[in-house]
Amino acid sequence: MSFVFYILAAITLAGGLAAVLLKNMVHCALAVSIAFAGLAFLFLGLDAQFAGFAQILVYVGAVAILVVFAILLTRSSDTPKDGGVFSRTWLAGLVVAAAVFAVIGWAVLSSVGGLPHEAAVPTVTVLQIGQALMGPYVLPLEIVALLLTVATIGAVIVAIHEKEDAK
């Protein structure tokens, strides 16, 4: 376990935690983009260059901006005055999340002995990824393309402002 890993993991987790805990919504969006960027660097640490850069491009460049726009459009950038930011059933949610973490953590820790120690660094070029996308994974690729088109149109139709008096 290298020093860099600990720093990146700490940044990522701190970003995620801040996104969940902060009161101001825009701060949450900025914190979550720190978490996304930290994850991208973790991907780079795992020798997955392509996935790491795609993560930054999609999450920091697009999803974070979408979230920010949604926050401003729904006017939730100001801290709510009544009742705080947490739901009435927050305790139940916290217990469920803690239980899930306990189960996954227990599963990981109890199988530590069986996990592989070191693996040779895989040399994956972008060319190989492209050929895989156009070869064995061409059907999923096309489905994702269709899905993205449908999602774009769907998002526009859902969010479009309908005129009160249709002409």
Binding site: A9, G16, A19, L39, S87, W90, L94, V96, I104, V108
Partner: peptide, 28 residues
Amino acid sequence: PLAGYLLVAALLFAIGLAGALTRRNAIL
């Protein structure tokens, strides 16, 4: 190293789950 990554992922998953279950705002 693999166990370290898995633990970080588990913790992040739990944080996300906690956020999704406890926050009031739909965007969060």
